Computed example of a mutant assay.
Amino acid sequence: MSGDPQRVLFDINHPAQVHLFRPVIGDLESRGHETLVTSRDKEITTALLDAYEVPHECLSTEGGGLLATAAEMGVKGARLFRLARSFDPDVVVARPNPPAIYVANLLGARTVMLRDTVIPSRVLRACYRGLMLPFVDDLCAPAGFETSLTGGRNHTLGFQELAYLHPDRFEPDRDRLATRGVATDEPYFVLRFAAWEAYHDVGGAGWSTEGKRALIEELDQHGTVYVSSEGDLPEEFSEYELTVPPHLIHDLLYFADLYAGDSQTMATEAALLGTPVIRVNSKVGAHEMRNFEELAERGLLFSFRDEERALQQARDLVAGPAATDWQRRRRELIADKPDVAAYLRDLILDPDGVERRRGEAPITVASS
Rank of each mutant, 00 (worst) to 15 (best):
Q6P: 11
R7D: 02
A16H: 02
V18H: 00
R22D: 10
P23D: 03
P23K: 00
G26T: 06
G26V: 06
R31K: 14
R31T: 09
H33Y: 02
T35D: 12
E43L: 05
T45N: 05
A47V: 07
A51D: 02
P55F: 05
P55A: 08
C58I: 14
C58R: 15
L59W: 10
G63T: 06
A71R: 15
A71W: 14
G77S: 15
R79E: 13
R82Y: 13
D90L: 03
V93M: 05
A100M: 06
Y102Q: 12
R115M: 05
V118E: 08
A126P: 07
C127K: 08
G130P: 05
P134A: 12
F135R: 14
V136F: 09
P142I: 03
F145R: 10
L157R: 00
F159R: 04
Y164S: 02
P167L: 07
R174N: 00
R180E: 07
W196S: 04
H200I: 03
H200N: 07
D201R: 02
G203I: 12
H222G: 05
H222I: 04
G223L: 01
E230Y: 05
G231E: 11
D232G: 08
L233S: 09
P234C: 13
E239Q: 15
Y240W: 10
T243F: 11
V244D: 11
V244C: 11
P245R: 03
P246F: 05
L252Y: 01
L258Q: 06
D262N: 12
Q264C: 11
T265P: 13
A267Y: 04
A270G: 04
A271D: 08
L272Q: 03
L273D: 08
G274Y: 00
I278W: 06
N281E: 15
A286R: 15
H287K: 08
E294G: 01
A296F: 00
R298Y: 02
R309G: 03
A310L: 04
A319N: 11
A323N: 12
A323H: 09
D325H: 06
R329Q: 13
R330G: 06
L333T: 00
I334D: 10
P338I: 13
D339F: 08
V340P: 11
V340R: 08
L344W: 00
R345M: 12
D346N: 14
D352T: 14
G353L: 13
E355S: 14
G359N: 13
P362K: 13
A366R: 08
A366K: 05
